[in-house]
Design a protein around this nucleic acid. Structure first.
Length: 450
RNA sequence: GCCGUCGUAGCUCAGUGGCAGAGCACUCGGCUGUUAACCGAGCGGUCGCCGGUUCGAAUCCGGUCGACGGCGCCA
């Protein structure tokens, strides 16, 4: 750096921008710097040139403020260079902050000095944008205030999950991503070539966690899960972030409470940390979250079927709920709803049967409007012979699960756990039309780039 | 996997059998208070691809590829 070329040296001499202290734009908009000389750095969000004056809306990660550049304050060449800048050019600006009703946001910086950091090429995203174009240019669309807001909320959600489980004595445990095992019965796996052996990307951390709790105790994770299903819906990703938990000695009621408390904690943290983002993304959601408290309603599968029949829907005992059923059911409650005690035939092999009614399993789905299933959880089957029977019913070869079955051969104990789809939580909080906006670089059946 | 819609300029779209168009972006010119500024000019095309019908195809027909929307499957 001390070996810079001669070009521009004179300019740097007259500029304080190289060793300036930069302020966040949000603080200017909150009136903290009014009347003061400040420096900011960021990107040109919009640009208007009216001849002898130029207006930039400059964005940094905290906000957007108008910068006014009057020709009189700059030498002619510099002013011409500034006029030529395109949207998304990066720059440093020094100037006085003024409150002015003509400026968007009510404040502006009257520039006394500008350093062009990089003059942008013609930015591919303009005012007319199709879904396809924005997805093709996702790496650039991440600069939008919309994606910034959603991904800020996402960051809070991840933090809240870690905080909740750690505060409740759960340890973080990592399972392998590469695995020879299926886990969820129906879901399809992505095969990978592991030195000429076909193995898979994991669908779930659960089976490995069930082995680890016997030593470590209660566990959780946040990890990606992969599903090779060509699901063309607004609620599915092929790669999604999965919060999973496995706890010793838990029964179904404990597990319901653990799910409810997690969801309430996430909602509380987002309200605390992302009020501004929520106002931009889903203002009505703020009131909903403020009023959200436990307990959430709990109904059994049988009750759900009855309610749907009473509402005139054509459903029969034994059916799993499709989109129309989920919509109807969730619309009957003003909070997330737990549906418990599903028939064993429509649930995974590892779920424990209810002793009071062995046709049902001890587990639940937590459902919310617009998104569907947020959490799926269950008490785990602890009897090795029952597990083998269920695996055979699913057409699986129990010998592939031998190490897992060992967890039931050596001091088996009651335990339970659930999985939460984090993008679905974000979709619910932000009222997103599509789950792909809940993640920076979504992976769907038709798209795995950029 | 099934059903549907759409592929024309960098972007958003119009054109439905007879000269390839508009708005925005970009370039140039004008403008000292703009608000995704405005005014004038310019630049910009393998009409997704392959084949067929026709004197003539962006347009009609067959196929194919891609994207998007909905269902199913699941978190």
């Amino acid at each position: 750096m001390d070996n810079m070329g001669q070009k521009g040296t004179q300019e740097e001499k007259s500029s304080d921008l190289d060793d300036a202290t930069f302020v966040d734009i949000v603080d200017i908009l909150e009136g903290q710097h009014t009347g003061n000389e400040v420096s900011i750095r960021g990107w040109i969000h919009r640009e208007r040139d009216i001849g002898n004056m130029v207006f930039f809306n400059v964005r940094d990660p905290s906000g957007i403020v108008q910068v006014t550049i009057a020709k009189d304050n700059f030498d002619e060449n510099k002013f011409e260079d500034i006029k030529k800048l395109l949207v998304e050019s990066s720059l440093k600006v020094q100037g006085e902050v003024a409150e002015d009703h003509r400026a968007p946001g009510g404040y502006e910086i009257r520039a006394s000095d500008i350093e062009i950091v990089h003059a942008s090429d013609d930015f591919p995203i303009h005012k007319d944008q199709s879904v396809e174009h924005l997805l093709d240019n996702r790496h650039l669309w991440l600069r939008s205030t919309r994606m910034r807001d959603i991904l800020s909320i996402r960051s809070t959600v991840f933090g809240a999950i870690h905080e909740f489980f750690r505060d409740n004595g759960y340890k973080e445990f990592q399972s392998p991503i590469i695995t020879p095992l299926a886990c969820e019965g129906g879901a399809t796996l992505f095969p990978i070539d592991y030195f000429d052996e076909e193995v898979y990307l994991t669908q779930s951390w659960q089976l490995y966690a069930e082995a680890a709790i016997f030593g470590l105790g209660n566990l959780y994770t946040i990890a990606p899960s992969f599903r090779a299903e060509k699901s063309r819906t607004p609620r599915h990703l092929t790669e999604f972030w999965h919060a999973e938990v496995e706890g010793l000695w838990l029964d179904n009621e404990d597990l319901i409470e653990l799910g409810e408390e997690l969801v309430l904690h996430i909602a509380k943290k987002v309200l605390e940390e992302n009020r501004n983002e929520m106002e931009n993304i889903h203002e009505e959601g703020i009131k909903y979250l403020e009023n959200l408290e436990g307990p959430f309603p709990r109904i059994t599968y049988d009750e759900a079927i009855e309610k749907l029949k009473d509402a005139g829907m054509d459903v029969n005992y034994g059916d799993d709920f499709g989109v129309p059923e989920e919509k109807k059911l969730t619309s009957m409650f003003d909070k997330p709803v737990f549906v418990t005690h599903y028939p064993k035939e429509i649930k995974a092999f590892y779920m424990k049967r209810d002793e009071k009614d062995p046709s049902k399993v001890l587990g639940y789905d937590l459902m919310v409007p617009h998104v569907g299933e947020l959490i799926g959880g269950s008490v785990r089957e602890t009897d090795v012979d029952s597990l083998i029977d269920r695996l055979e019913e699913e057409g699986e070869d129990p010998s592939n699960y031998d190490w897992f079955l060992d967890t039931r051969r050596y001091g088996s104990v009651p335990h339970a756990g659930y999985g939460l789809g984090i993008e679905r939580v974000i979709m619910w909080l932000c009222n997103l039309d599509h789950i792909r906006d809940a993640i920076a670089f979504p992976r769907t059946p038709n798209r795995c780039r950029p």
